[in-house]
């Protein structure tokens, strides 16, 4: 226990209780690129430093060293820029972003890129469950494996996974595309409204209203383009899955309901 007058340093992964909401201003800027070490910084300080560099200093290329798997890093970045995390992120990393191109040289926890509007996120390792939850646009590339319910409530954009995907992948998917190169767990595309899921491996079982779709030239062009952009080599042979539209029918939606899924 800390004695009177002694400050005890603890690590709070949730980044709560930050009495001084000021950017630490520890970044080094060289040739228009900024780098800072996040090892001794809290979640809030890291995000404040990121925003200071991007919004106040006008830097468009930032590298964050030693992110230490802290949660909620790189969230709410709403500008075109390049961010590199040299290490792993915790949960809700890079959520709510609109515009950045982010490279993560490590793993990510659950709900990475939740509600992403646009941009590119490349994860070199594995990702937890709910990867790309409610994704609205942009590309999310995971070179490892993803957990259960990845792309849940996806409303747009592309999730590309080089490895396997867990159960209930694409649950309640509404729009967008998923390219899953490995095997997929049970309940693929359960209760999906729309969207397209490409699977390169074996599917344990299909969810309700998820059915095989007809492959077209547009599918070939799309898959080849994404593999080429991200230097992933030749794509494997994929099977395409879509919504059978037995459970839901967009045409019957009220105008206000229709807008929610656009």
């Amino acid at each position: 226990m800390a004695t009177v007058g002694e400050q005890r340093i603890t690590y709070d992964a949730r980044g709560l209780a930050e009495p001084h909401a000021e950017a630490p201003r520890t970044a080094k800027v060289e040739d228009g690129k900024a780098t800072f070490d996040a090892h001794d910084l809290s979640t809030r300080q890291i995000n404040l430093e990121l925003r200071r560099l991007l919004y106040e200093e006008g830097i468009t290329d930032v590298t964050v060293q030693n992110p230490g798997a802290k949660h909620s890093l790189g969230v709410g970045i709403l500008t075109r820029c390049k961010i590199t995390f040299d290490g792993s992120l915790g949960y809700f990393g890079c959520g709510l972003i609109d515009g950045p191109e982010i490279q993560i040289n490590g793993r990510v926890g659950w709900s990475a890129c939740e509600n992403m509007m646009s941009g590119v996120v490349v994860v070199e390792g594995n990702a937890g469950s709910l990867t790309g939850a409610a994704l609205r646009g942009g590309d999310l590339v995971v070179k490892g494996q993803v957990g259960a319910r990845s792309g849940i409530d996806q409303k747009g954009g592309t999730i590309l996974v080089m490895g396997d995907a867990g159960s209930m992948t694409g649950f309640m998917m509404q729009r967008g595309r998923q390219i899953l190169c490995g095997n997929v767990g049970p309940g693929l595309g359960d209760s999906m409204y729309d969207g397209t899921i490409y699977v390169g491996g074996k599917v344990k079982s299909l969810g309700i209203d998820c059915v095989p779709g007809e492959w077209t030239e547009a599918d070939t062009e799309f898959v080849n383009r994404k593999f080429s952009i991200y230097g992933l080599g030749d794509p494997p042979e994929f099977q395409k899955f879509v919504c059978g539209k037995v459970l839901y029918n967009y045409d019957n939606l009220e105008p206000a309901e229709r807008k929610l899924v656009l």
Binding site: R80, G99, P100, E101, M117, S118, G119, V120, R136, G137, G138, D139, G156, G157, T158, R175, G176, R225, I229, K259, L262
Partner: peptide
């Protein structure tokens, strides 16, 4: 748009609003 293709615009298509061609601004 970010990236090497049209990125998020891939999801944007021509729709119709009250009989007039329209595009949705999210």
């Amino acid at each position: 748009t970010p990236g090497q293709d049209i990125n998020w615009l891939e999801d944007v298509e021509l729709l119709e609003e009250e009989g007039t061609p329209a595009v949705f601004d999210r």
